[in-house]
Design a protein around this nucleic acid. Sequence first.
DNA 1: TTGTAAGCGTTATCAC
DNA 2: GTGATAACGCTTACAA
Lengths: 372, 372
Amino acid sequence: MTLQERVWQRRNRLRNRFPSLVASEAPAPAAAPRRKATLADVAERAGVSTSTASRALNGHGGLAAATRAAVQDAAAKLNFQPSALARSLRTQQTFTVGFVVPDVSSPFYAAALKGAQGRLEQAGYRVMLMDANLDVDRELAALETLLSHQVDGLLVASTGMPRSVFDGAVGTGATPAIFFDGVVEGTGQGAVTLDDEGGISLLVDHLVEHGHERIALLAGSQRESAGAARLRAFHAAMLDRGMSPADRYVKVCAWEIADGRRAGLELLADAEPATAVLASSAELALGFMSAAAVRGVRVPDEVALVAFDDPYFGDLLEPSLTAVAYDPRQVGATAADLLVEAMRSETEVREVRIPVTLVRRRSCGCQPEASR
Amino acid sequence: MTLQERVWQRRNRLRNRFPSLVASEAPAPAAAPRRKATLADVAERAGVSTSTASRALNGHGGLAAATRAAVQDAAAKLNFQPSALARSLRTQQTFTVGFVVPDVSSPFYAAALKGAQGRLEQAGYRVMLMDANLDVDRELAALETLLSHQVDGLLVASTGMPRSVFDGAVGTGATPAIFFDGVVEGTGQGAVTLDDEGGISLLVDHLVEHGHERIALLAGSQRESAGAARLRAFHAAMLDRGMSPADRYVKVCAWEIADGRRAGLELLADAEPATAVLASSAELALGFMSAAAVRGVRVPDEVALVAFDDPYFGDLLEPSLTAVAYDPRQVGATAADLLVEAMRSETEVREVRIPVTLVRRRSCGCQPEASR
DNA sequence: TTGTAAGCGTTATCAC
DNA sequence: GTGATAACGCTTACAA
């Protein structure tokens, strides 16, 4: 609070100087607007009341074509920009949505953000961004900040926040929330996730086609819903095909390259190592590749590798990476669409799954014809 | 406007229902706050005036310890969250900064955003994000939107906006602006850029050490200041070493992988092709690698490659990529620091350069001992 | 068709 | 120390 106090004092000092400036200084050289024009200024210049000015500018109720023109003219001359603050305070609508992610610098979230930003801007909304830094407490703080700014809606990829905490902070239904990627089960106005089951199925199927039976999983963190979903899907897919992976083949770990490397080294040190590895994310796959390189294990000759997540440089790796691909922007864009709908009118909660496809390259053992 | 109208109507309908709810419904089960608590509610519960309540909460001027406690207690009980909107309207401070980039989904900007976000949050600021989508017009629109929200400061990576346009929109000095990466020359309260000269020098030197003389440049777009700076630095560095590259070795192009590939193919089709290529960004280098692969030209045996920009998977490429590295978060963080300073008090304009280092890997022809 | 006035939720000035 | 009261810049009944 001390900080705020100091700053305000400064501002006020500045503002207090204005009267004298305006009063005693020579009249402005011309139409050089000394201070940001307000609606009252526009009204005065157009010779009407502020209410009329407001109506003219916002296209509301009946009003003479002439006055409307006069007001618009005055507004243009003064370069009038309505104060979003004042308007929002009055209308209780901010046309701002809060965007919360575990880590903006992750390519996936950055792309989702881009997708959402585009749609929201088109719909007339601004985005206020908060990075939870993979920390549930900060995620909570982020939500509270956003709420105190009266955002009209929330787009959140949760870092595994319990439902009760989320509902406690957001209050049920007051501010619509759409989850993407990191879902808080049982709340919110909707969710968009990747087709984890379908993707894992594609990957397992493909490895089986290559004749693998001892398949390992780099599962990622189980706090985020996506990690958990992929692990579940993996077990289901294996069972479907009459296999059940040894527990020691399933590595739960964080999402960074280093974590994938660590887990990969463990996998490779096994007495009877898996012949194929499925990584739950591109980073984990990268980590595994690096582990294999360190141990001198050749991919795909000695161990096959596939990933859920197709990095944009997947083609250029050695070996190129077989992976499940999807459009991360689409998840952001879709979530934004759902949110815009929810903000416009009550809608029933909807869950959307983004489709994924298999990209066959060399890390699985395939020999794709010379690409491109 | 039609949209806004409709939404407001709905809101008002909702609000109009509240009085009856509050008035006729049975008293709330307990301290279950029906509606978001306002300062007036807190004051009433504490039995003081709103002014006193405000003072108590903000730690202003003298007031009895007892009353202060009472107010704080009431606030806690009501779960009071001050309205940022109302406060900002009154104080003319939003504690929000606008962040404008050409493309958030680019790893560099995403990382810069992350760096800035952290520092700003620490300093008590929120970030409102706008993506200009590589378009100067949208950049302008973004600035105007931000200004209409009365952001306290601006962090902008410009897509090559002319100074006059920027000054016209932002007005000189009213709202402090710090540029990063994409600088608008001659305005703003500061700028932070990478050490383009130093980086290019390192790269050229290194290629020269390898014995190269016919060095080509994938220059990137010249609209952004970084692209232009690297091109200038390249010419300077070559001249310094007594070389002057043929014009046909210098390819100006956009920043995408595909652009790098296209330019790379041209370079390789040359009758007397360059023996080394310097790419102004990681994407351009990737594009070149892909072009070389298509043509069956081996890197580094037949052509050496170095890049300004070290992608996080640079190690795992084939060949691994020799590059100039830097911390993109640091540029965001540094810019944020400058901005916070500028918002707190008038400061002279400062230009900061972020240092870069050379990472020797295999694409240049080096044989680094087994990494890691 | 237009104006008057109330109010959104705060903070700040000035009396008491 | 504390309380009225007037802004901040806008929208919107309600009156004229």
